[in-house]
């Protein structure tokens, strides 16, 4: 197919995945990166040729967690911080389903932190897309576990005295077997990484750095959506190049690409071996 033809086919592919009967446009602020991630996810699923019936989108609570309702998949909008255990139940009960969790920095790393590290440790075949906008958007701009030290939010009005952690290194340390990061500016890369994550057998994390110009941007003078997109472009450093840079050089940089990728036995597969070995015993 000529690239132009492919371009045409791809540009409206997202429209075939929108949930019938749901009102558009989305609830998100104009220019919110969540919409870009939603487009990336759709195109990644489309490229993989997954059927709509086999995809389960699970989310917690927060701006990013409003994503699943907009898409024509099985969608499960759960409670704050609990998307991963809900997803674990759905996946473990129906292992043939492709279970993808949509979560945010607050949802996954603050209230959901305990479930996050255990889902990684278990290496259950779930893809978690963590949309990191460094703030609690839904509740109006409070600091989150990824809000950088010194930056402002409605609960760090004098500058955040706390340090933030990096979800990717946390996930890799906890046992996730595929970890990658990109930004909403680098949509083609984000789409590719999401596709790789979904195909990977085991727990996959894709961190999508996103803009919240309504709160983080405004409270820290980072400008509007366009300005924050530009900043992502400037700050991004491919993982290969970053490995040759010092910590100081990497200060405030966003290391993008596949950060961790190993093959390990997967939770549902291992449990199935137990079932196969003991089925029918009295």
């Amino acid at each position: 197919m000529a690239t132009a033809e492919k371009a045409k086919q791809k540009s409206d592919v997202t429209l075939h995945y929108l949930r019938p009967g749901k009102k558009f446009p989305s609830v998100w602020c104009p220019g919110c990166g969540n919409g870009v991630v939603m487009g990336s996810l759709i195109r990644a699923i489309d490229n993989l040729g997954l059927s709509k019936d086999e995809v389960v989108l699970v989310s917690g609570i927060g701006c990013s967690s409003r994503l699943p309702v907009y898409l024509d998949f099985n969608s499960l909008h759960t409670t704050h911080g609990r998307a991963l255990p809900f997803a674990t139940g759905a996946k473990f009960a129906q292992p043939h389903m492709k279970v993808i969790v949509i979560t945010g920095d607050g949802d996954a790393l603050a209230i959901g932190g305990n479930h996050f590290i255990h889902a990684c440790r278990r290496n259950i075949d779930i893809t978690a897309i963590l949309i990191n906008n460094h703030i609690y958007g839904m509740t109006g701009g409070q600091g989150s576990p990824t809000t950088p030290g010194g930056t402002f939010s409605t609960t760090t009005p004098y500058g955040n005295v706390e340090k933030h952690f990096d979800p990717c290194s946390l996930a890799a340390a906890a046992g996730a077997t595929f970890v990658a990061r990109s930004t909403v500016y680098h949509e083609p890369q984000l789409q590719k990484l999401i596709g790789q994550a979904i195909s990977h057998r085991g727990f996959s994390l894709v961190e999508a750095i996103s803009n919240c110009h309504t709160y983080f941007g405004r409270l820290n003078r980072k400008g509007d959506a366009v300005a924050m997109f530009d900043a992502f472009k400037e700050r991004a450093v491919p993982v290969g190049k970053a490995s040759k840079m010092t910590e100081e050089e990497l200060e405030d940089k966003i290391v993008t690409g596949v950060i961790h990728n190993v093959e390990k036995t997967e939770f549902c597969d291992e449990y199935q071996k137990v079932v196969d070995a003991h089925m029918g015993e009295k």
Partner: peptide, 29 residues
């Protein structure tokens, strides 16, 4: 449960346990 093709999981806490139960029930078990 393994003897009848069922599934058991010990979760990281009780909140995770009930979440997994509800997720599994919605998915069909």
């Amino acid at each position: 449960l393994p003897r009848i093709g069922g599934r058991f999981i010990q979760m990281e806490d009780e909140i995770g346990s009930i979440a997994a139960v509800v997720g599994a029930s919605i998915s069909g078990l």
